[in-house]
Design a binder for these strands. Structure first.
Lengths: 219, 219
DNA sequence: GACTCTATCTCGGTA
DNA sequence: TACCGAGGTAGAGTC
């Protein structure tokens, strides 16, 4: 990883055109070739960047990075304050927990949390516009499509509505109703769900995990 | 900006829990206090980070960053290879062009570009599911909702369709028709627009800007 | 390669 | 502050 501290100005042309006036910044070049220009603030996002794969041509006072889709980043170096290079090696990578996949797995095991009497038919039930997260039956034997989201938004409601439209065309399934299961649900999505006749259920992920480990302790 | 190259392992607890096994990485601390941990690849996104504002407590072999919403980042330093600090100063910031906001402003000034006789009623017309970019009347006095996008996609068509559904419930407005104004429009979105009875208009942003500056030259 | 959906999205605007 | 929408979204998974 090459780290250059320099007084520079930058021009980007591609999906938009952007210009950075002259100032002192960090230019970071990673081993995969990606280039990022950082100011001393503004969270982790660089002011300007160019992802790999790209072509980097460095002259003493002008760097030009370009890629195959015609994007171009030109860095004009007015003064180089520091220029270092470090070998970091391969990174073992990040281990995550708490994403939608895990929430879906927990609900697949305990669908009755969403509604009394709910039973799982299968996960990732396929339709021709994509898989439904969970397909279940309710206490009256009616089919229920469940869409699992960390944050239920209008788009989630629409997504589920499209699935329901699809599933209702299958005579073995219809009528199918929908449940949107989410950790949070903004009011706009709530309005939309009501309009589409979809039930929305707020799920307590931490509570579910808790219950999970309690059970493990019991057996 | 402080740049530390170190063999470290990292634990994050907050919106999810995540762990980074021991490896050599770059730890970047910006003047605003934000901390980012970069590997030598994976585009500009760090493996782990903590935005400002936060509290950073540094011991020789353990850094702990925490914020008011209970997120916590713990960096265990096994070996510090390099530790430098640079004063960068305030950044003048990025100048952008070509964004949707500008396109919307141009169309608000000259709605007749979209359709002969179109007149603006107001920008950002509010509905209970969000604001419509432009509300206009056509040459026959009928209301027209305009959604402005750089790239018109299926989601844009659906968004406009939702607005129309909403606006049509207002007896003072209905019947309301829709125009999707975009610089580009993939075939799928075009099909969708037709199905939803929405007009799609390709707008030449560069041409609009040109016309704009021509007028400025005239007066 | 194109399409779809997630994201500790980030970032900016506004009520 | 919270919510909402745009993004050079990026990135992962699927077809």
């Amino acid at each position: 990883m090459r780290l250059v501290i320099a007084r520079c100005s930058v021009d980007y042309e591609g999906r938009l055109t952007a210009h950075l006036p002259e100032a002192t910044r960090l230019i970071m070049v990673k081993a995969d070739g990606c280039v990022a220009i950082h100011a001393d603030g503004g969270a982790y996002k660089p002011l300007n960047w160019m992802n790999a794969p790209n072509m980097l041509v460095t002259e003493p006072d002008r760097w030009e990075v370009s890629n195959s889709s015609g994007e171009r980043l030109v860095i004009t170096l007015h003064e180089v304050i520091s220029d270092t290079d470090h070998f970091l090696g391969e990174d073992p990578g990040l281990l995550k927990d708490g994403v939608e996949a895990h929430l879906q797995a927990l609900l697949a095991e305990k669908p009755w949390i969403l509604e009394d009497g709910l039973k799982l038919i299968r996960r990732e039930y396929p339709t021709d516009i994509g898989p439904v997260d969970l397909l279940c039956t309710d206490s009256e034997g009616r089919k229920v499509a469940v869409e699992v989201k960390r944050r239920g938004e209008i788009a989630s409601v629409e997504q589920l509505a499209r699935y329901l439209e699809r599933l209702d065309q299958d005579s073995r399934l219809r009528p199918v109703r929908g449940i949107l299961a989410a950790q949070s649900l903004p009011p706009q999505a709530s309005v939309m769900a009501e309009a589409r006749n979809i039930d929305a259920v707020i799920v307590d992920y931490e509570g579910l995990k808790e219950a999970e480990s309690d059970e493990l302790r019991l057996f």
